[in-house]
Amino acid sequence: MKFSNHLIILSSIIIGFWLDDLLNPISIKLFLELNFGFFVFSYWIFALPEKLKTAAPLFYGLVTDLFFSNVVGFNMLFFVLTSYIIHLYVFRFRIFSYFQLSVFFSGSSTLYIAFKYLLLSPYNYSYIVLTTSFLINAVLWVGVYFVMRAFRRSFF
């Protein structure tokens, strides 16, 4: 894959995390933590598994960590893990319904949020936040999926 394509993917992930940074201070009052950045990353791995292997998640994670995280390595770790799981079941995912995909990706996102709280802010760990985020993100995933698919088709 060309470097410009990597830049486009990275830019879209950064925009997703930037949106999270922008909206989460508001949404957290409703016990909801949005996770657009993670969804965007997951979508790219899901859509282009043969092009994005191990190095890409590491690099994307590193950049995201540097710009949006309080520690370096967290997004790298999660991106690699998610990438591995998606790669492992990518053909199975192709026959999944939207609902099943929503549940899987929303679950991954909730796991991401849960580990983030556990590692970086254990005092704010909340099951209400996790439950609400799981439900809302499951719905949001469908939107992100279609938007990103339209975006991908215009570039790749």
């Binding site: 590491l58 390595g73 967290f74 893990l81």
Partner: peptide
């Protein structure tokens, strides 16, 4: 590769 990536990122973290 994933194991290496996982270990590396875990180490960095």
């Amino acid at each position: 590769n994933y194991a290496i990536g996982f270990l590396l990122s875990a180490f960095i973290l």
